[in-house]
């Protein structure tokens, strides 16, 4: 059972207080009507599903109900960082010293991302 630093409370809390909801940084297209069926399908259904460094979204459902992001190693299940959506993820990645080539995000992200989240 994981133990997570809640970036809003800034304290360690049990995993059981949270829901974990799939990949992070998968921004919804700003104008869905303009994307192709392929890109739309990629957006809804396809995931990086990374073995290794994984970016995911957590939400507290027993208290403040805020969403935040977690960087976790899916092999060791170690949580490397937690951050609010308004924090600078690039800086966090740099601070962790994660090599860019170890970061896999579902292809759609690169193509469709038109805003930062």
């Amino acid at each position: 059972m994981l133990y997570v630093r809640d970036p809003y409370l800034n304290e360690m809390r049990d995993q059981t207080e949270y829901h974990i909801r799939s990949e992070a940084h998968k921004a919804r297209p700003l104008e869905p009507s303009k994307v192709s069926d392929k890109d739309w399908g990629d957006y809804i259904f396809f995931f990086a599903n990374t073995k290794g460094i994984h970016f995911e979204r957590w939400v507290n459902f027993t208290g403040h109900r805020k969403w935040f992001n977690v960087i976790r190693n899916t092999v060791t299940d170690e949580i490397l960082a937690t951050y609010r959506p308004d924090e600078d993820v690039k800086k966090i990645i740099a601070d962790l010293g994660i090599d860019k080539k170890d970061i896999k995000v579902s292809g759609v992200l690169k193509k469709l991302k038109k805003k930062s989240s």
Partner: peptide
């Protein structure tokens, strides 16, 4: 199942 992606062949105790 757990809610999170994992390749460790182990799940949460809860």
């Amino acid at each position: 199942t757990d809610e999170f992606v994992s390749y460790s062949q182990r799940g949460s105790f809860d």
